[in-house]
Simulated scan of single mutants.
Amino acid sequence: MSASITNTSTRYGWAAIVLHWLIALIFIGQFALGFVMVRLTSQRTAFELIQLHKSFGFLLLGLIILRIAWRIGNAGPALPRSVGSLERRTAPLAHFALYAFQLALPLSGWALVSVSMLEIPSMPFNLFVMPNLPLAESDAAESFWAAAHWYLAYAGIALVALHALAALRHHFWLKDTVLTRMITPSSDRDME
């Protein structure tokens, strides 16, 4: 019996699990990094952390696009029978909101650096220059995208916290498989 890369009707496969946890780790790390970098007094350290934040933001954008493509092409497992009808209706909306925020947040960051009057190039992990989005530079646009990025970050982390609490509720209170199926991958036996 070997672990499967694809999802089955009862469990997620390796691809979905790895993408889920990698995106979660980067998303939470980005929030922490963003929180710290804007509060530093050392401009040099802040600049270096901002460049790192931009690098992980572009990586996150690529991973979430890959995750959405995988989700479209590889249906997730059905919810356990113990899940009520209200939750069955709201769970897809919650997942859609998570995907939307995970896309909007790095895109708003990319827009922010694209409209910045400072014109500092983005070099993800110092590998190449990422072109700016075709947006006009201005102080007003920079203020708008900075505020949008800030609000999206806090709303996104609130959604992630609710998502985590819901998973813990399923595991510890309802004692169903909602959390474990995102930890233990599907296997050949699940496909029989």
Results as ranks from 00 to 15, higher is better:
residue 27 F to Q: 11
residue 28 I to A: 14
residue 28 I to W: 08
residue 28 I to G: 06
residue 29 G to Q: 11
residue 29 G to S: 09
residue 29 G to K: 11
residue 31 F to S: 14
residue 31 F to A: 15
residue 32 A to I: 15
residue 32 A to M: 13
residue 32 A to L: 15
residue 34 G to N: 08
residue 34 G to K: 09
residue 35 F to E: 15
residue 36 V to N: 03
residue 36 V to M: 09
residue 37 M to C: 05
residue 39 R to Y: 01
residue 39 R to N: 05
residue 39 R to H: 08
residue 39 R to W: 05
residue 42 S to R: 05
residue 43 Q to S: 12
residue 43 Q to F: 10
residue 45 T to H: 01
residue 46 A to V: 00
residue 47 F to C: 00
residue 47 F to A: 14
residue 48 E to C: 01
residue 49 L to G: 03
residue 49 L to P: 01
residue 50 I to K: 07
residue 50 I to A: 09
residue 50 I to G: 08
residue 50 I to D: 08
residue 51 Q to T: 08
residue 51 Q to W: 04
residue 52 L to V: 13
residue 53 H to D: 09
residue 53 H to G: 11
residue 55 S to R: 12
residue 56 F to Y: 03
residue 57 G to C: 01
residue 57 G to N: 02
residue 57 G to F: 00
residue 57 G to S: 00
residue 59 L to N: 10
residue 59 L to V: 15
residue 59 L to Y: 09
residue 60 L to E: 04
residue 61 L to S: 01
residue 61 L to H: 00
residue 61 L to T: 01
residue 61 L to E: 00
residue 62 G to C: 10
residue 62 G to M: 11
residue 62 G to R: 11
residue 63 L to G: 02
residue 64 I to W: 08
residue 64 I to L: 08
residue 64 I to A: 05
residue 66 L to P: 06
residue 66 L to M: 11
residue 67 R to D: 13
residue 69 A to F: 12
residue 69 A to K: 07
residue 70 W to S: 04
residue 72 I to V: 14
residue 72 I to P: 08
residue 72 I to Q: 05
residue 73 G to T: 03
residue 73 G to Q: 05
residue 73 G to N: 05
residue 73 G to M: 04
residue 74 N to C: 14
residue 74 N to E: 13
residue 75 A to L: 07
residue 76 G to Q: 07
residue 77 P to L: 07
residue 78 A to R: 15
residue 80 P to L: 05
residue 80 P to E: 00
residue 83 V to N: 04
residue 83 V to I: 11
residue 84 G to M: 00
residue 85 S to W: 07
residue 86 L to P: 01
residue 86 L to R: 14
residue 87 E to L: 14
residue 87 E to M: 12
residue 87 E to Y: 09
residue 88 R to N: 10
residue 88 R to W: 10
residue 88 R to F: 12
residue 88 R to V: 13
residue 89 R to T: 05
residue 91 A to T: 08
residue 91 A to R: 05
residue 94 A to S: 14
residue 94 A to M: 14
residue 96 F to P: 06
residue 96 F to N: 11
residue 97 A to D: 14
residue 97 A to E: 13
residue 98 L to Q: 10
residue 98 L to N: 10
residue 99 Y to N: 13
residue 100 A to Y: 10
residue 101 F to I: 07
residue 101 F to G: 15
residue 103 L to T: 06
residue 104 A to V: 06
residue 104 A to K: 05
residue 105 L to S: 04
residue 106 P to T: 05
residue 106 P to S: 02
residue 106 P to I: 04
residue 106 P to V: 06
residue 108 S to C: 01
residue 109 G to Y: 05
residue 109 G to M: 06
residue 110 W to P: 04
residue 111 A to M: 05
residue 112 L to I: 02
residue 113 V to Y: 06
residue 113 V to E: 04
residue 113 V to G: 06
residue 114 S to D: 03
residue 116 S to Q: 03
residue 116 S to T: 02
residue 117 M to A: 15
residue 118 L to S: 07
residue 119 E to W: 10
residue 119 E to D: 15
residue 121 P to R: 11
residue 122 S to D: 03
residue 122 S to G: 02
residue 123 M to G: 00
residue 123 M to A: 05
residue 123 M to R: 08
residue 123 M to C: 01
residue 124 P to I: 12
residue 124 P to R: 08
residue 124 P to T: 11
residue 125 F to C: 04
residue 125 F to S: 03
residue 125 F to M: 04
residue 126 N to Y: 14
residue 126 N to V: 14
residue 128 F to Y: 11
residue 128 F to Q: 09
residue 129 V to P: 06
residue 129 V to A: 12
